[in-house]
Design a protein around this nucleic acid. Structure first.
Length: 546
RNA sequence: GCGCCCGUAGCUCAGCGGAUAGAGCAAUUGACUACGGAUCAAUAGGCCGGGGGUUCAAAUCCCUCCGGGCGCACCA
């Protein structure tokens, strides 16, 4: 089909208008089943430019399409839609293809050749992860999986903000707790600090006998390692994987040979590009050249670098490490940063519109969620997870686009019913296994696959849904919207349940096993495979029994 | 004041410029001595925040107003 339509677009004698591009050629699955298996609006798109009547043009294209193998019928509808219906054998072939492809079905090469660094969560290692981090963790990890499935070379990265005076405040808080003193000014409250102090004292029994500065440093460093370990464990339990844990301290570290840090080098490089100037004893980056509303200080009058300086060095480090494309996933409370990051890209000589991409996630709230007393009245990832379970939590956060503000209802998240889409999808998957087990017991095998036997309306719909999966994955990757995979999984689960209600895989009672049963087993197994692949992209388990 | 995001069914939310705007929940009513009823079938529920514009075609793109969230540091 593609070939005929594109020939129409590119062949000089049949389509003389040069302004027509491949982007005009849309072939999509119509929402309404009455409009066939595939539909195209190409005739309406190009009619004006080629000076033709859209309906006549559509009829001409339809005539060519109808002659193709596997096409059952082609109709022209409405203002010039071309509706294509495949015959059962052509539509059914996808079931075998899916079973043969296995876990790789859905992968595509739309992002092949792209090297992407995806940074998300990047929490300060001074306390537990909260509900905001939880959403970015779920979305970021799923996005990473989707981008890989689309063929990108991808590294997921956690930037550890382990430099700066919040670390000193953190250390001072632990030290104070160890002494039984109240939380210092600008310190971190919460019982977890006390818990950390107990563990620090176990590791450093003589902490309180050391000189003050030494004790502070030890409290800070020991507490940091313990807290970072907690964060890593929380994320691992949440099925979230990072390829790289990047320490901000690396950027501050002084090179023995040159006596300079990565940040020094970064400022030099930005200066060489002509985007750095000195004023009022401070060093500034001319971010207004790139759309920021004011220039930003990168080195203060007192000689101390701002946070922005580390950001600059970090950005450059990503490019130095071979990542042409950098994606940042930030919370809405950091959206003021977008201009600055874009400006960094521009100041570094990159293209701010192509080489850096900043995704802003809106805030999430959960009605009635318990605030964590131990972490100072935040909602903790660990609490949410033990309360709702990894699958329900990841799925619930993963099925909404990042830019939509979200309010979750814990009553529903806890229900193991249709109310909760994750169980609806997982149940469909478990059901495919149940059906396969029963088929094996009844002597139904996959020895025969005759796609022409898949003629029931629910089979046609199910096959159509299955065929769409690679397109969904590609779209989710290109739009950076992993939630599309979840929505698709729900649609597929629905198509499967309805098929199950209408079409049996195992024969009833004394009925003989026929090729219809055998072929349906392929369809059943194909559905299980795609549900499994979709859930895997979301980091959610696909149980065989529930 | 400036900037970003959001406003779609009673609720929570999908919706790539296309055909009669969808799903789940909540409400009402049905279907198992048939592969798991954690399922399925059906009914009802909408000036897609308001108003302009672009287009053959707008929930979708542009402008404007209203409402909500967030941000505007020589903090990190």
């Amino acid at each position: 089909m593609h070939s005929v339509v594109s020939r129409r677009e590119t062949s000089p004698e049949s389509a003389p208008a040069p302004a027509v591009t491949i982007g005009d050629v849309a072939l999509e699955r119509p929402r309404n089943r009455d409009h066939g298996d595939w539909a195209s609006n190409v005739a309406m798109k190009i009619a004006k430019r080629v000076g033709a009547n859209p309906r006549e043009l559509a009829a001409e294209i339809a005539g060519e399409l109808a002659a193709l193998d596997g096409v059952a019928s082609v109709d022209v509808a409405g203002p010039g839609f071309i509706n294509i219906t495949l015959d059962a054998a052509a539509a059914g072939a996808v079931a075998k293809k899916i079973v043969d492809s296995g876990a790789r079905y859905g992968e595509n090469d739309s992002l092949a050749g792209q090297t992407i660094n995806l940074e998300f969560v990047s929490a300060n290692p001074t306390g537990p992860l909260h509900i905001g981090h939880t959403r970015w963790a779920a979305l970021g990890d799923s996005l990473a999986r989707v981008l890989k499935a689309a063929g990108a070379t991808l590294v997921s990265e956690f930037y550890i903000n382990d430099a700066g005076n919040q670390m000193d405040n953190f250390g001072a808080s632990i030290l104070a707790a160890a002494k039984g003193e109240p939380t210092p000014e600008n310190g971190y409250p919460g019982e977890y600090v006390t818990e950390l102090s107990v563990r620090v004292l176990e590791l450093v029994p003589n902490l309180l006998e050391l000189p003050a500065d030494e004790a502070l440093a030890l409290a800070r460093e020991t507490g940091y390692q313990l807290q970072l370990g907690e964060i890593k464990q929380s994320l691992a339990r949440f099925n979230v994987h990072f390829d790289v844990w990047f320490s901000e301290r690396e950027l501050h570290a002084i090179d023995e040979a040159t006596g300079r840090s990565g940040i020094d080098g970064a400022i030099d490089r930005l200066r060489a590009q002509g985007h750095v100037y000195d004023s009022d004893d401070a060093v500034w980056v001319k971010t207004t050249d790139f759309g920021d509303d004011k220039d930003r200080v990168i080195r203060r009058g007192n000689g101390i670098f701002t946070y922005f300086a580390a950001d600059a060095a970090y950005y450059l480090s990503k490019g130095d490490r071979g990542f042409a494309h950098k994606i940042y996933l930030l919370g809405a409370d950091h959206h003021g940063y977008v201009h600055r990051l874009k400006a960094l890209a521009g100041a570094a000589g990159d293209d701010p519109d192509k080489d850096i991409e900043v995704l802003i996630g809106q805030l999430v709230s959960i009605n009635g969620a318990k605030l964590s007393k131990r972490a100072g009245n935040i909602i903790e990832l660990d609490d949410l997870q033990s309360w709702l379970g990894t699958d329900a939590l990841r799925y619930s956060l993963g099925r909404y686009p990042a830019d939509s503000p979200l309010t979750l209802d814990p009553e529903i998240l806890q229900k193991r019913t249709n109310d909760n889409p994750v169980f609806y999808v997982q149940y469909a998957h478990a059901r495919t296994h149940s059906v396969a087990r029963n088929a094996a017991d009844s002597g139904v095998t996959r020895e025969v696959f005759d796609a022409a036997l898949l003629t029931h309306e629910t089979e046609s719909i199910l096959l159509g849904t299955l065929a769409e999966f690679p397109r969904i994955v590609r779209q989710a990757a290109e739009l950076r919207e992993p939630h599309r995979v979840a929505r698709y999984a729900e649609e597929l689960a629905g198509s499967y349940h309805r098929w199950y209600d209408n079409c049996r895989v195992t024969p009833l009672g004394e009925e003989e096993v026929t090729d219809v049963h055998r072929t349906r087993l392929w369809l059943n197994d194909a559905t299980g495979q795609v549900l499994r692949n979709a859930l895997a992209l979301l980091g959610v388990s696909a149980p065989e029994r529930m």
